[in-house]
Simulated scan of single mutants.
Amino acid sequence: MATYFFEDYTIGDEVRYGPIAVDEEEMIAFARQWDPQPFHIDAQAAHQSIYGGIIASGWFTCVLAMRELVANYLSPESSLGSPGLDSLQWLAPVRAGDQLWLHCGVVDVRPSRTKSDRGIIKTKIEMSQEGESPVLSMIATNFVLRRGHSR
């Protein structure tokens, strides 16, 4: 992966990553540990739910997005963490076997007012199946090291 510094992010830039396979074993194991609601872990209960079958925890969907962001969008050499999300929406159920795509669009870029070694980027992040409406939407803020600076 190339190293991206603050200066490499420009408002309007868009990138797309995928496909990201939704593995049933991973999905259920995650839910058993972190979100053990019946429609995430129990096939019979899930079948009788409004979802008609097991669906991924929304948090698992976020984990899939984060793994892809770390692998492709945020560089380990320059990523300085995040103060959080402006919004997070789970828009549709995700199921085992789905093939998801991550779309990132830079919506804001500004140098830090208090720390000259970094800048702040805001990214609109969406996950969807090919050609379908998003299943996840969020706006993330990240601190990113400026070129020529070190940690």
Rank of each mutant, 00 (worst) to 15 (best):
V15G: 13
V135Y: 06
I41D: 09
Q129R: 14
C104A: 04
Y9P: 04
E25S: 09
E132L: 11
P93Q: 03
L91W: 07
I121T: 01
G53K: 10
N72E: 05
M138S: 10
Q37K: 01
F60Y: 08
M27Q: 14
V63P: 15
L74F: 00
I139D: 01
V107F: 11
G52A: 08
W90C: 12
V144I: 09
P38M: 06
F39C: 07
N142H: 08
V94Q: 06
E24T: 12
A29E: 15
D23Q: 03
V109D: 06
W34K: 12
G12K: 05
I11L: 13
V107P: 10
E26G: 13
S75Q: 00
W90E: 10
Q44L: 14
Q99V: 09
S128D: 10
A140F: 08
V22E: 04
F60V: 08
I28H: 07
F60K: 08
T10I: 14
G119Y: 00
F30R: 03
S112M: 03
S116E: 13
R118L: 07
Q33W: 09
W101D: 15
V63S: 15
L102N: 04
E25F: 09
I28S: 05
E126G: 04
D108T: 03
S133W: 15
E24A: 12
A46S: 11
S49R: 06
I125C: 10
K122V: 05
H40T: 10
D42H: 00
F143P: 00
Y51W: 08
V135M: 06
R118P: 05
A46T: 11
R32E: 08
A65K: 06
V109A: 07
K124Q: 12
D8T: 01
V144A: 01
V109S: 07
I55L: 06
L91S: 09
I55R: 01
T114I: 07
A96Y: 06
R67A: 11
D8C: 03
T123D: 07
L102V: 02
A65Y: 00
Q89V: 11
V22N: 02
L74W: 00
K124T: 12
G18C: 08
F143I: 00
A71G: 02
R95Q: 00
F39D: 06
